[in-house]
Design a protein around this nucleic acid. Sequence first.
DNA 1: TCGGTACCGTACCAGTCGGTACATGTACCG
DNA 2: CGGTACATGTACCGACTGGTACGGTACCGA
Lengths: 192, 192
Amino acid sequence: MASQARQRLLDAAVQQALESGIADLSLRELAAAIGTSHRMLIYHFGSREGLLVAVAQAVETTQRSLVFGPGSPTSDKDVRAFWKRISSPKLWPQERLFFELYVHAVLDRPGTEGFLDNIVESWVTPIAAVAMEAGADERTARADARLSVAVVRGLILDLLATGDRKGVTAAFDRYLRQVRIAASAGTGLRDG
Amino acid sequence: MASQARQRLLDAAVQQALESGIADLSLRELAAAIGTSHRMLIYHFGSREGLLVAVAQAVETTQRSLVFGPGSPTSDKDVRAFWKRISSPKLWPQERLFFELYVHAVLDRPGTEGFLDNIVESWVTPIAAVAMEAGADERTARADARLSVAVVRGLILDLLATGDRKGVTAAFDRYLRQVRIAASAGTGLRDG
DNA sequence: TCGGTACCGTACCAGTCGGTACATGTACCG
DNA sequence: CGGTACATGTACCGACTGGTACGGTACCGA
């Protein structure tokens, strides 16, 4: 399937979306940038919406593959490497596009159905699994994981707006510090 | 100034934007919904972009007034009340629109110039001020404040996608717990 | 009464959009 | 050779867009 030609068009479309977003992505402009006619985009994707669906899926797949590269990160060092990777300016276009699609989906715009389906869950589950291996109960582990996803996404949002990687990383380090302290002190404390 | 008529149109425009966003907000549709002609929107705002600027400013003002209502929240109780307020479904449209504008601005779309200017700073400063009153040094206080902004925004993003207020609130509570533990244990620890 | 100013609607413009009709080319299969 | 499926381009369509020209109405100060 996916007929080479279609894949080529899709890659180019994603590339274009990474540069200028999807909101004002017109078939004609895109086709001109690729070097074909908008007719072909309709042919291969059925409609503009079909193209958006394909782009959204591609972005979501990439984003999902970002969660964790090799193995389960348990040490601070692994987590810091993870942060360093996803906060790299090279990934900013990818993340900008991710958030644009996110907002589109939240606003129920056509072409992003299903985009939100596991957008939190697919990160929470593997992260919580790591904590549960260390003996945490499921409810707590999942809440903590959900928090960490929010931290990462919130800080990336900050990063995209300010570009201040150093300051944002400092905030991330504060988070790691808190987690570490709470973990070492936590077993002896009641929580609310 | 702002000539009543203009204000009326602006209010209606914001209302419309709260419902369906700004991306496909056309002057004609909006005018029809308000009960006037798109000519009047051009008349009062100069252009579509001028209207977007006005809407963005209105949203930013509202959002900024959201930070803290009365006084400086220091106790967990205050912070929890704050969270309860901003996570209320009644505010979801406001927050959806905020994030849509945020993304638009990140993508450098016209009409949102300056929207990002203090989008992190204006939250960080007052929050850090509270911590500094309690004796924290500025750098640490600001990093912690920046983290808390990311937590709130990241969790709101989660909330908008999943609608799971309970689960998201549980994650927020975990954050508060961490902060509390780290604060009580923190003075005696070195950080990295 | 006159001139100006604020406000508003109708009608129009040129441009762009997504989508379609139709013709064409090409390559493989019988 | 014919047929058939895929791929592609050109030319077009109706709809919608932001913006403008123009004309009108109502008020206000001179």
